[in-house]
Each structure stands twice: as structure tokens, then as C-alpha cells.
Nucleic acid binder design. Sequence first.
DNA 1: TTTGGATTATTAACGTTGTTAAGTAAATTT
DNA 2: AAATTTACTTAACAACGTTAATAATCCAAA
Lengths: 214, 214
Amino acid sequence: MGIPERKEKQKLEVRKLILDASMKLFVEEGFANVTIRRIADLIEYSPTTVYLYFKDKDEIFSSLHDIGFTKMQEFNRTLASIHNPLLRLHKMGENYLQFGMENPEYYSLMFIQGEPMKKLSEPGCEWKPGDEAINRLRATITECIEKGYLASADPHLVSLSVWSFVHGLVALAIRQRMEKFIHEPEALLPTMKEALHWFMNNIDITEKRAIDHG
Amino acid sequence: MGIPERKEKQKLEVRKLILDASMKLFVEEGFANVTIRRIADLIEYSPTTVYLYFKDKDEIFSSLHDIGFTKMQEFNRTLASIHNPLLRLHKMGENYLQFGMENPEYYSLMFIQGEPMKKLSEPGCEWKPGDEAINRLRATITECIEKGYLASADPHLVSLSVWSFVHGLVALAIRQRMEKFIHEPEALLPTMKEALHWFMNNIDITEKRAIDHG
DNA sequence: TTTGGATTATTAACGTTGTTAAGTAAATTT
DNA sequence: AAATTTACTTAACAACGTTAATAATCCAAA
């Protein structure tokens, strides 16, 4: 029976149509302009049709949220090739900053947005890609500590700290809270990378680490 | 002519009434439930009356935003008495974390919320309290560097870094992105303070700084 | 090939929201 | 006391998320 499969596929195709339209609106016109009716306009369906493929608006945003994580994962696929764990950690940070600045809407959905993303705070919420990212970070930091690049400390706590640092930079930047510090928009990312550089040099306990890897 | 003055005063009183109601809704029921009509209900006026005192909803949020900054300033009034600049910096950080965790709605408005706060991105936007906070941070850091507590570096960059670090912690915490790291809600703030402690110990360049000031 | 049940899509509507226009009641000035 | 300004309300508009009822389409069996 190949017919139910084709129907399944078609269903997925319309789903994708909806997600693509949402994404487009989301990236080009911002969160507030992602509206069921505007999505429907874009895909040339009636507004209510959207509800045949998604339970509600929240489910659409959840899907975009997940897509964001896989985008970020792709962005990081070159990372495994860096053998020095401290350099790898640094590059992870730089990638994080860059991904955030290049995909502010996705970043918002993934790490900032609260109100309409109630699914996140549910207990059974696993979203593997995020877990994996956290695990990679912790593994790298554990390796840094073991090999004497970082001072002995709870890897858990250090992971949280490193993540908070880069998140703080991106979150302040894309929510326009840095304009007092950095006036020209094109100076944002470079300055953030400098801050990360400063951070890395401070937590690094190996002497004479003046190698400029950036 | 004392009459126009009294009328002015009354005008301000209704303004305050509106702000208080907004604040109440905002803190007790969250951003999404601050609605012109619910504000009007609380103060027992018609919805449209609100528009006689505020241009639009944005202007109400802007006012709450400003109030948030003065609240934070009050929260920090004991800070000047700490003479050691590094200890002062540490305490500034702890206060920041605590303020954010105790006033998540205000914190959102002040440092996270984007969409409905367009006033912020305007060019002429000064909002003195925020500027002053930044200046105090930079002054403290400059003092830390001058007195040899922190490695020589651009105070501007270090300020940005320190702020980003604590902001990252608070922003992740109040937007429920830390649940993977910290499972019990009551462990949140203590762990964040530990992270800050770790951070301070890493950027501090004075030897043997094992004094536990927290 | 036609009928009938399931699938897919639409129209109409409800209860919200922010906001504006028009109208009314009260206070102040002339 | 009449005219005018001020303070407020009622009614309404457009857009929102969402649901119920309805129409159109498709596929399998008679």
C-alpha cells in the first residue's frame, strides 16, 4: 500500500510549507509579525487550515525552536577536529557568538523568549539537540581541567559560567542593550569576540598563553 | 494661581494610579496580562481614559522600565561603603544576581524584553539611571586595574565582560534555560553566586586570594 | 461507475487585544 | 448665566488566536 505513505508525505509537505512561511516571517519581520493569518496568506491557505497541521501557535514556535538547534549544530560541525580542548572551547564560544549575531531571531527563540514557549518549562521536555550541546560543552571543559588548561573546579559550574558569559554577550547585543558600550553596529561582533578572548585568557592557567588564535 | 498647580498634581496622581495598577499586574500576573483594559478595570476607569495619560502601551512599559532602574539603584545603595574595589565589584555582581532573581519581571523589562520597547532603540534615548550604573561599574573596574587587582586591560571591555557574565546568569535563569543544569529552583541563586565566585577568582590576579567573602 | 465515508479545506463566528472618533458630563472662565 | 475648556465614556475598527459548522475533495468498495 503506497498510498497512505504518499498522503503522509503530503501532510509533511504542507507542514513544511507552514514552517517555511513562519520562518520567513520570523526572520524577515520579527516575532510579533508571525501571525497565523499572515502565515496562511503566504502559503495561500485559509487561516484555519494551519490548525490541521499544528495544534496551536506555540507548536509552530516549538518547531522553529528545534530547527534552530539543528542549524546551530550544523554551524558547529567543524569543531570536533580541534584537538586542543582549550582552543576548541574558544572556538565553541566564537561560533556561539557568531551564530547568535547572524540568527538573532532563532537565538531569541532558543535561549531568550519566554512567554509563548510554555512547552519548554514542561517536565518531560528533553529536546535532545540542546542536551547534546550541553554535554559537548561539559566534556570539553572536563578535558580542559584534566589536561591542566583550566584550574581544578566543578565542570558543571564552569560549563554554566562559560555558557552564561557568551549568552550574556549575545543576549545584550541582540536586545540592543549594548549601544551604550558599542556605538557602531559593525563593531559589535568583533568587540564581543575580544571580550571572549579576554575571558579565555583569564580562565586559562597555563603560563605565557599569548598565542593569538582568533 | 494655585489652581492649575493642583490640577497638575491631580493629573500626576492618575498617572501614578495607572502605573501602580500596571506594576501590580506586571509583577503578579506577568507581562502578557498587562492589558489596557485590565489596568482600566483595576483603577475603575474606562479603558480609553488611560490614553489621556499615556500615549500608548509602550509609554507605560517605558515608565515601568525607568522605575525598575531606580529600584535597582536603591538596592545598591550600600555599595559605596565597600572600599576594596574588588570586593565592591563582587558585591555589585551579587546584588545584580539577587535583584534579577527577586524581580524577574522588572529585570525582563530592563534588560531582556525587546519587541514592545521600541523607545529604547531610539537615538536620543538617555535614561540616566542606566548610564550611571554603567559608569559606576566602569569606575570600580578601573580602580581594580589601577590597584593591581585585575590584569591591565581596557576597562571598557572588562566592564562589558563582567556585565555580560552576570546578565547571562540571570537571563538564562529567569527564562528557564538553566533547568538542565540546576534542577531545584531554590538552588538557582546560590549556584549562580558560586559561578560568580569562580569568575571573580579567575579574573583576580592577586596571589592567594582564598578569602571567602560571600 | 456510482455511492459513501473519511480526509482536507473553508466560511463564519467568538472573545480577545490596542487604539481612535465621537459624544457627554462636569468644571472653569468670562 | 453662558461659553468654553477639561475629564471621561460609549461605540467602534481592525487584527489577533481559536473553535464550530460546513463545504469540497478524494479513495475504496458496491
